[in-house]
Design a protein around this nucleic acid. Structure first.
Length: 155
DNA sequence: GCCAACGTTGGC
DNA sequence: GCCAACGTTGGC
């Protein structure tokens, strides 16, 4: 199975790439995905070794900030079972979990963050779902070329 | 803080 | 099954 490439959004106020860098083994579980399309990517397509662009949304400026890698494939997002969690979803049952998560490990933090503005200026990235109008998906596939281009700019 | 775009909910 | 109302996302 060929390596796939992904882009995943996180609000840095909630969980930033620096938080990932400080995590044990620089690894974390990616909780809180509550969208079916994103869930399907996580559940059905993400494999160990896949590469991920870590993207800061709702930040100034929004930007691609680093690379991580899938180190554990889909398993139930336990935060959905916890009434105390902001991601609690009573519809997700332990015997039939609605939401899934993967574990990701930091590969590198970019020396230069690649802002959404810079990405928009790059013709090779024009087709990325991230840059399309009205895009709200928090987990999305990208091509190897797009991945490589962002890494090239991010250093 | 605003608001357009989108996904979800629920009445019918 | 339609669709209006609502809540959320996320760039600006």
């Amino acid at each position: 199975m060929a390596t796939k490439y992904w882009l995943m959004k996180s609000e840095p106020d909630v969980f930033s790439i620096d938080d990932l860098a400080k995590s044990k083994n620089q690894t974390t579980y990616w909780d809180g995905v509550r969208n079916y399309q994103a869930r399907n990517f996580i559940r059905d397509e993400m494999k160990i070794g896949d590469k991920v662009i870590f993207y800061h949304s709702n930040s100034k400026p929004p930007a691609a900030v680093g690379i991580c890698e899938i180190v554990k494939e889909a398993y139930p997002d336990f935060t959905a079972f916890d009434p105390e969690s902001p991601h609690y979803d009573p519809k997700s049952k332990k015997d039939n979990p609605a939401w899934m998560m993967v574990d990701v490990k930091l590969v590198m933090k970019f020396k230069n963050f690649v802002s959404i503005d810079i990405m928009r200026q790059n013709k090779k990235l024009k087709k990325m779902q991230l840059l399309q109008r009205g895009n709200r998906l928090s987990v999305m596939p990208i091509t190897k070329d797009e991945f490589d281009e962002i890494v090239k700019m991010g250093g």
